[in-house]
Amino acid sequence: MKPFIYHRARTLQDMPDGATIIAGGTNLLDLMKHEVTTPGSLVDISHLDLNRIEPEGDGLRIGALVRNSDLAADPVIRRDYPVLSRALLAGASGQLRNMATTGGNLMQRTRCPYFYDLRTPCNKRAPGTGCAALGGIIRNHAIFGASADCIATYPGDMAVALSALDAEVEIAGPNPRRVRVADFHLLPGNTPHVETRLQPGEIITAVILPAPVKGEQRYRKVRDRASFAFALVSVAVVITMTDGRITRVALACGSVAAKPWRDPECEAALIGHAPSDALFEQAANLMLRAASGHVGPAFKIPLLRRTLIATLRDATGLEPAP
């Protein structure tokens, strides 16, 4: 690890210029040990008063420092936003969830192995050096929205559920604002090192959940082992049925792009219809029409198709086909 100056912030204003925020530390310290990130100055925000879950309008305001384990276990989250509990519980381990914060989880970096390997070129780690993953040995990379400069994914689970719940990120700084989680992460384009809409000097203070939606919610995560592994693909569904027809649906897919992936056309195609295998096949075709697989991650195309259909069947109570 490179040397740094440590400062513990007492207030939101108590932020040294140019300091890198540390919250739970579970991603940042890992990257600092690998010297992928080498901040000269750290500001520890973990003692700021941002650790409450409280009502906001008809929804909820989740402080940026609420730990993943507290959020997953919160009785209101479990009752009204179960897809969020499920996504959190499917991520990392009991120890890590006790440390990981809501803000830090949103900001976590990719798990592309070349990003971690200082001996290889990586446009995300060292802009302009090239991308070792393109043409390298890859597997858990993007099938949507990749560019000629980067094909890494955003690896987190929580944000996939938040995207399907139409949550917003509250940002403090010179230009306070809210950004939809669905718009918060950026596709790589030719600037893969710019990963979110957060600007230097800004801080996430909360995530805002809108009023709960009636209906069913599911989070399905597919991974290499049954627990404690990042997703290969994941699907979050929030769906409402009225008189046997789908009247509202949000679908977000994880670990397939640099952001939780939503497709408005795919969602629109489900509205007004009764659930059926044919309908879900059609939805999967729409979702996957934009997919392009480099040889390594190409397996995710059929995997996401099956996961999407299985999750929709489960959420709508459709009996599995024989």
């Binding site: 739970g24 890590l96 006790n98 440390m99």
Partner: peptide, 9 residues
């Protein structure tokens, strides 16, 4: 609470 002491300063 249980945590990983390797990922905390």
């Amino acid at each position: 609470r249980r945590i990983n002491a390797c990922l905390t300063l």
